[in-house]
Amino acid sequence: MEIVENIFVKNGLIFAFLCVGVIMLLSYWISNQLMRKRIPDVAIAIIIGLGLAFLGDKKGIADFPLFSGMALLGGSMLRDFSIVATAMGADLNKIKQAGWAGVIALFVGIFISFFVGGIFAYYMGYTDAENLTTIAAGACTYIVGPVTGSALGVSSDVIAISVAAGVVKTIVATIFTPLIAKKIQLDNPHAAIVFGGLIGSTSGVVAGLAATDTKLVPYGALTATFFTGLGCLLCPSVFYLSLKFML
């Protein structure tokens, strides 16, 4: 037993790959079998992750030596590195297809998410620019939040709140989109492009549109893919600085 534990501790990062792989597999199964895709597997995986963090203390599950590799895999270096890599999938020619409505929706979507998220955070006691920006960025997507938070050097618990806000967004988008699609005239490709830009959480947009009308999915995904990148650019810079000067 000791030998096994030793191997896992010594090869922490590799063990972390295994752990996360199992979590992904489990959440895929929960999403498809138990929830009938009502909640995207990505959201479930992150919720499991946040749940596991509960078991530990300041560093979440990485407080246990056995899982210390998770801190390396989930640390800001690899995270930012892999997020930058996603820009590869964003074809600049595609933005032409989205047209003006798509581009405007992207900017308005990031602004409105940040604004609404920021207002709630402010009135619930997060009044300094760094924490406020991080939570507001989390209301954009669960990626923009932690990227912004680590850039601004906020504490781990505030980053956790920002991730949770992004996960809530994904889930709300998934569940509510089919319910209110008619009311917001989300029944054509053009509206789906606008919707993708306004909501931005790719997993939420894709799952929500899939539950509404699968034909709309590629149109929503078209703009949503740009959302996180643009958010990572705007939130820790323009939005943070504006807040800093306002407060």
């Binding site: 996360v20 979590i23 946040l50 955070a121 939570i135 209301a139 781990s156 618990d157 809530v168 939420g204």
Partner: peptide, 30 residues
């Protein structure tokens, strides 16, 4: 997967008081 690993290593215990903020900010923005 990296974001999942990150989520598992955050200080969630201290963040639980901010759960309502996360809920309102996320839902409100959407």
């Amino acid at each position: 997967p990296i974001v999942v690993a990150m989520a598992a290593t955050l200080n969630v215990t201290a963040a639980i008081t901010g759960g309502a903020v996360a809920l309102l900010a996320g839902a409100g923005a959407t």
